[in-house]
Amino acid sequence: MKLSPFFHVNNRIAKTVTVLLAIPALLLPAACLLYILFKGIPALHWDMLAGTASAVSFGAIGSLWPQVAGSLLLMLGACMIAAPVALGIALFHALCASARQQRMLLSLLHLLQGIPPIVYGLCGLIVLVHMLHWGICLLTGAIILAVIILPMLVLNTVHAIDRIPLERTEAARALGMRDGQIVRRVWLPAAWPSLLTGLLLGMARALSETAPILFTATVFSGINWPDSLFSPVTSLQTHIFYLAQEGANAQAVNIAWASAVILVALVTTFSISASALRKIRVGG
């Protein structure tokens, strides 16, 4: 069949319109990123990561190492709490829950995913900081971040288990394997790349959340390395927030840009590792 010339013209117009519409969607984040790099890279100095934090000027000058460490500690804490809980909930979903409980669990998780993180921060402030007297500390922040990334981790694990062919699970069961053995020897070997991908995305998410840890886990400065779980920390995210408010202080704003570059680099590392893993999974 020969297509009418109008089809080609229409087709070309449609293509152009789509591209034109897509450009701002791509351009905006790209421009943001470029601007951060443009402002931040000149502000970066080696001694920001190597030197020690200075108490002068509210920590606005000196090393950013405590902030990087604080961010990573919060992230690791959140993942160490959330990952086993997520696996447990997903296994309950797959092995014990009735069809109705499964539906209820999934809708609850979707609901939780939609709650603004600041609300979790507020709950953490009331329950953990005030009622339990933990104060503003690393543990409080890690738990709140864990709760925030939990729905995503659970849904990811549930879907990873769902993708395992039912025949394979039934074959294992027909061989007399118990639930625990099936999880260990059939499900985890098949699902671990997906689980790791989800965990890396959860890490990226925990690194970028700012509001909920602002008043539950972090202080502006004065902490090099927390001496316990109940010690407050500093973090890159909140550091940017504090410094950006010092709009008049050119030095402070400069360091905010430098912090932004480091944060973007960290988040991108986790996201890119996640998508690389996903490619391996699709390939293999």
Binding site: P165, E167, R168, E170, A171, R173, A174, L175, G176
Partner: peptide, 12 residues
């Protein structure tokens, strides 16, 4: 189940 070897229609 060890005693009742089951072979499914679709090999897994």
């Amino acid at each position: 189940r060890h005693q009742m070897g089951l072979i499914a229609q679709k090999p897994a």
